[in-house]
Design a protein around this nucleic acid. Structure first.
Lengths: 165, 165
DNA sequence: ATATCTAATGTTATACCATAACAGTCAAGG
DNA sequence: CCTTGACTGTTATGGTATAACATTAGATAT
């Protein structure tokens, strides 16, 4: 995690620090209930932590905060909560960053693509219906049965383009 | 790396153990020359190792082989060679597997998607023009300047579908 | 040829990411 | 109550990746 990222807090994240986070949290609870799984305190708090962050967080970043709040302080605590969230569509894993970010649109079933800014490390979730369809087609042509996919783009977010202009 | 993967060597890899590897190696040399970079012994050998493998290899797998052949035996040796190959389009990094695979079509400029089989760990490179175009569109809509992207699909390759039927 | 400069290799050391395995806890249903 | 299964927590360990610096080898210009 670069200081750079921590310093430039005004980039792209579209779910941080706002009333929006509340709404997403509520959606998350509904979704958990609908699926018959429990959004326990650690899990809920983990989601909140992700929502508050303006960049994707590493598991150890999350862990540090959890530990400081009286939850367990060993890696599995964070990884379990994060994996739970990912499994149930409440968060996403960003493989390029070895990090996690809250899902901006839980509830809706959606295939997302992630736009990762090289300058500020912000991660934006973009609708990826078309991308996903195209990929399904490519897979089908190869006789491959597609289960799920990771689509990550790297480049410059709008804010950082302006900043570097 | 599962033993499973090592055991089932007949899945999808389309560039291993054949005259094809020779051809790709030649293309790689041409490409290096064209770009004014050097395909040194470690780099070349690293590419050969990837070409011979029927699955994507972790950096430490590659390192082990390199070390056994008299090259350096410390991680940076492998990472440097692998990063070189990736940078120049001679290999691809498969993030979901923390692994690398030789590019099946060096020379051609191409955007690839990777089809990763959950059963046998094989990685197939699929043409991704359409996927890439769709992604470019999605990025543009977000005002994002796309530099490059990673597209990885997970599922079952054709061979493993038949095997499990 | 040889001095010089740069790119590439090699090494040590360390940091970061992730999971296995097991022990204790807690809530729901019999 | 007591059992059961899911959840949390811990210890321990394994796998992935890079920083920093010393050394060597290739290219270039005198």
């Amino acid at each position: 995690m670069t200081d750079h990222a921590a310093a430039s807090s005004f980039c792209c994240a579209d779910h941080s620090g706002t009333a929006n986070a509340q709404a997403i949290l509520t959606q998350a609870e509904d979704r958990a209930k609908a699926r018959g799984v429990r959004l326990t305190p650690v899990r809920r708090r983990t989601l909140e932590i992700l929502l508050q962050a303006h960049v994707a967080l590493g598991a150890y970043d999350v862990l540090e905060r959890l530990g400081a709040e009286g939850f367990g302080s060993q890696p599995p605590v964070a990884y379990r909560a994060l994996n739970f969230l990912v499994e149930h569509g409440l968060a996403h894993r960003i493989r390029r960053l070895n990090a996690f970010t809250a899902c901006a649109h839980p509830g809706e079933e959606h295939r997302a693509a992630f736009l990762i800014c090289e300058a500020c490390d912000s991660v934006t979730e973009a609708p990826a219906r078309l991308v996903s369809d195209a990929l399904a087609l490519a897979a089908a042509e190869a006789g491959f049965r597609l289960e799920r996919a990771t689509i990550e783009a790297v480049g410059l977010c709008a804010a950082c383009q302006r900043a570097s202009a």
